[in-house]
Design a binder for these strands. Structure first.
Lengths: 209, 209
DNA sequence: TTAAGGTTGTTAAATTTATAACATAACTCA
DNA sequence: TGAGTTATGTTATAAATTTAACAACCTTAA
């Protein structure tokens, strides 16, 4: 399978979550335009994404939800599962774990790291917190491949370098610092302030016209 | 000024924040390629964005940082400032306020809302928390135009409808529910789980090849 | 059974976004 | 001063992403 467009991957994740919701409501089939409506996108978008992952339904009575969920899984999950850690277990870190809670998936949140002695060696939001200094051994012992970075801005760059050295292959960066990583490591950045300023800009523009 | 591309608006926000950092380090001028390097993008990207907002520096010794910060402000800020509220002041809500703290800007975080009696009427992370039931009067009295939505998924849709009715013009949605809003209201969605699953996908793909 | 309707998969076109190319003009240093 | 260097603004090109168009084919209803 060729590497999919980033946007398609994002939507696949959303499709799956939406489909799981449908399933829990007792539905078994869903039309492309239904799924699209639930996500406020177009049916063409849905069909095109499914085409890209090679999924097609023989019948024209909608997609078999269970089957589609399973197919999406084979595309975006890795078979063995991937272990994830949160670095910096402040409010944001805890918020992320809350989103994870209850979702059984191939992504296992297995550790958090902090340098606050109040937190180290405690279980926070259901996850054991280790000291930042112990990252090397914990990352290796627990085979952690993905890190969610929610440390104070001043620590962002050095922490990033460190964890890459320890074998982290994917980073979701919530700090306001732009990071860079060697090739072979995937970096996704998200900046809340930017999002809010963007909203503010378009609110302003709407008002003017 | 024509409406700018969304991506350009995002970068302008990032430019400004980076430039403020430069300023605090005592720098006064910055080349397009310097700014680009700090954000790990290309110099062309920077120059093109500045072209779109009509900014140009006469001299070739870099951009005047103060001037550029000011110019970006005239583009993405609204003169009078905009008032913002957080709806649902759990871990995520507190994380957002932490990002805001200390940044003086045209965006004023003026209220939070929750339905937990433990929180209502208290000052949380420096912001007064009101009861969800009082949204109508508070939104109107405090002239709140933007809402950051971080309520439990089950409440997302109804809360969205409500606040739009009360005059909210921009929403940053952190819930995992896709919302829809009438035209005239700007909606920006961000889904953490999707981001993490995206990272996981590209980590998997990198490993295979 | 067959025609009508509706859903799908896929190619083609349009739009959005990023990158390259390059002429212009300030700066440098002899 | 003036040739060479370098940074800039802008047009042109390419890449990514979304939307449209449409033929194929299942379903349904008479």
């Amino acid at each position: 399978m060729n590497k999919l467009p980033g946007k398609t991957v994002e939507r696949l994740s959303e499709y799956r979550r939406t489909l799981l919701g449908c399933l829990s409501e007792g539905r078994n089939y869903v039309f492309s335009h239904d799924l699209a409506a639930m996500l406020h996108i177009t049916a063409v978008q849905v069909r095109r994404d499914l085409m890209l992952i090679g999924y097609s339904s023989v019948l024209r009575k909608g997609y078999d939800i269970k089957e589609l969920i399973q197919t999406i899984g084979t595309i975006i999950d890795s078979e063995e599962g991937i272990n994830v850690a949160i670095i910096g277990i402040g409010n944001l870190g805890r918020a992320v774990t809350a989103y994870f809670r209850g979702k059984r998936s191939k992504l296992n949140m297995v550790a958090s790291f902090d340098n606050d002695p109040q937190k180290v060696n405690k279980v926070i939001s259901g996850i054991k917190c280790f000291h930042i200094q112990d990252m090397e051994s914990v990352i290796k012992d627990l085979n952690i491949k993905i890190a969610i970075l929610s440390v104070p801005a001043d620590y962002a760059r050095s922490t990033c370098e460190t964890i890459v050295r320890f074998g982290i292959k994917g980073i979701l960066n919530f700090t306001t610092i732009a990071l860079n990583v060697p090739s072979g490591v995937y970096l996704e950045e998200y900046d809340m302030i930017t999002s809010i300023e963007k909203v503010a800009y378009f609110v302003k523009e709407n008002r003017i016209k």
